[in-house]
């Protein structure tokens, strides 16, 4: 029994550590993106070529169809630059939010405080971030691609699709948050009950 409890605590510690590691990795990615983008020189921007696929020759006779590409643009106007920068940083910020949620949950579970207010808040904010991110990230990436293509005078149609994986993750985390909120309420109701 004690061994099982120790195992559980260790699992929660690993969860908190993984969250902390995720935050550190996120910070590293943000620094990398800032170094690439801030000088406003040869800024890499992914663009969608699905509407105009290009055949690419791979080695001898093998061919492939390129539906995505990265273009490098320089001297973007302030508005376009802001869009490109935000589109590049937002996925990492969402990842960091998930990592923070893991760290908070792991810490509070490890303490034995399963229904801590901090955990509930972290879950709610992360679920909302994932739901908003599922729409905002693709929308910003399309805007960034249009801005980059516009800056070099090219017009290739960009499709905007909701990121359904992020959306599903947000819905699932939202469901877990709701269940935990009910649990916290039940715990509050039964505390001090004789």
């Amino acid at each position: 029994m004690i061994d099982r409890l120790n195992d559980q605590r260790r699992n929660f510690e690993v969860m908190a550590l993984a969250g902390g590691l995720g935050v550190l990795v996120g910070l590293g990615l943000i620094v990398r993106d800032l170094v690439r983008i801030l000088p406003n020189r040869d800024v890499p921007v992914p663009v969608d070529l699905a509407s105009t696929p290009h055949d690419v020759l791979l080695g001898g006779t093998a061919t492939a169809q390129a539906t995505e590409a990265v273009i490098r643009v320089s001297d973007l106007s302030p508005v376009r630059f802001a869009v490109v920068l935000t589109a590049a940083l937002l996925p990492t910020l969402v990842l960091m939010m998930v990592a923070v949620c893991f760290a908070v949950l792991g810490t509070s579970f490890g303490r034995g405080d399963v229904f801590a207010q901090g955990s509930l808040r972290a879950m709610k904010v992360t679920a909302l971030t994932l739901l908003l991110g599922s729409v905002a990230i693709p929308a910003l990436q399309v805007m960034a691609a249009r801005s980059a293509l516009g800056s070099v005078g090219v017009d290739v149609g960009q499709r905007m699709e909701t990121d359904w994986v992020l959306f599903a993750a947000g819905v699932m985390l939202g469901t877990v948050w709701y269940a935990f909120r009910r649990g916290a309420r039940l715990q509050r109701d039964t505390e001090g009950l004789v």
Binding site: D189, T190, E191, G192, L193, V194
Partner: peptide, 17 residues
């Protein structure tokens, strides 16, 4: 539980109790 009740630390009491 009765001690909790006696010392005014109870926050709820069952009808059965």
């Amino acid at each position: 539980n009765l001690s909790v009740l006696k010392n005014d630390r109870a926050r709820a009491i069952r009808f059965s109790t």
